[in-house]
């Protein structure tokens, strides 16, 4: 194991975050706060409780998930795409590092950023709405698991992308809609029966539902199913990355 290399990549990536603090931390915290103000404090006060939880509190796990997904993906995809774009990737490719070490360095840093961001959002939410966390340990596990899984997914996008547009397209065209339609702002049980069934094909439903359970003990789907689906997606990402390095896909000609 080349620990020095993992450290070098991890530090390099974290230093990049340090330089772009506004963009990578402050701006997502700000935009999430706007949601809390509008949906939590302003509109939320006029809405009834959902499954015994005030609307402002109800949307916290979903909003947190939304930031976690989009930031994990964009951090990790940019982290690997940029050296590919500038050409500095040559050094990583020629170094005595394994694929696993490269991934741990890049994905570890991206996930760390997302987790820090998630915790900051949780703290910020406290300013606007009152909430409790029923299962803090499970909540932590979900936070870490989601950050890691979607950083892995972002890494795949970064390797796959051959232009800046492609870097944006998956988060914007797929992840954001799936999160909005995945029960971030409502309970699945509020939908007509047919849509309840269709919604179950949306993987984000499982994330949001499980995450919400860890806060309020209420969920749309079984929490074990939620964890299972997340782990499954994570394994799929790891498998894809393994294949990418094995074949040199868009990394080596």
């Amino acid at each position: 194991m080349n620990i020095y290399a993992i450290k070098a990549i991890y530090r390099f990536e974290m230093a990049r975050t340090g330089r772009t603090l506004m963009q990578s931390i402050a701006s997502p915290v700000l935009s999430t706060s706007l949601y809390f103000i509008v949906f939590g404090a302003a509109i939320g006060s006029r809405m009834g409780n959902i499954e015994g939880v005030s609307y402002g509190a109800f949307i916290i796990p979903g909003l947190l998930m939304l930031s976690l997904l989009s930031e994990s993906i964009s951090n990790a995809s940019f982290g690997i795409y940029f050296p590919k774009f500038t050409g500095t990737i040559y050094e990583v490719l020629s170094a005595p590092v394994s694929a696993a070490e490269i991934v741990i360095g890049y994905v570890g840093a991206a996930a760390t950023k997302s987790i820090i961001l998630g915790l900051l959002i949780l703290l910020t939410a406290r300013v606007f709405v009152d909430y409790q966390i029923a299962h803090p340990f499970v909540m932590g596990i979900f936070l870490i698991l989601t950050a890691l899984t979607f950083s892995l997914f972002g890494f795949i996008i970064g390797v796959w992308a051959d232009g800046f547009e492609k870097l944006q397209i998956i988060p914007m065209m797929i992840v954001t809609p799936l999160t909005f339609l995945g029960g971030s702002f409502y309970s699945i049980s509020m939908l007509p029966p047919l849509w309840q069934k269709i919604t179950l094909f949306n993987p984000v439903v499982y994330l949001v539902s499980g995450f919400r359970w860890s806060f309020y003990d209420v969920s749309d789907v079984n929490v074990e199913v939620s964890v299972g689906m997340t782990v499954l997606f994570m394994l799929a990402c790891i498998g894809t990355i393994y294949w990418m390095f094995k074949t040199g896909y868009r990394l080596k000609s």
Binding site: Y4, K7, A8, I9, R11, F12, R16, T86, E91, V97
Partner: peptide, 22 residues
């Protein structure tokens, strides 16, 4: 090909770490 925002010191030490040296 260089990392525009890195310092000379950081980028050279990065290389050393990447190649597995303390």
């Amino acid at each position: 090909t260089t990392d525009a925002f890195e310092s000379v010191w950081a980028t050279v030490n990065f290389s050393r770490g990447l190649f597995g040296k303390p």
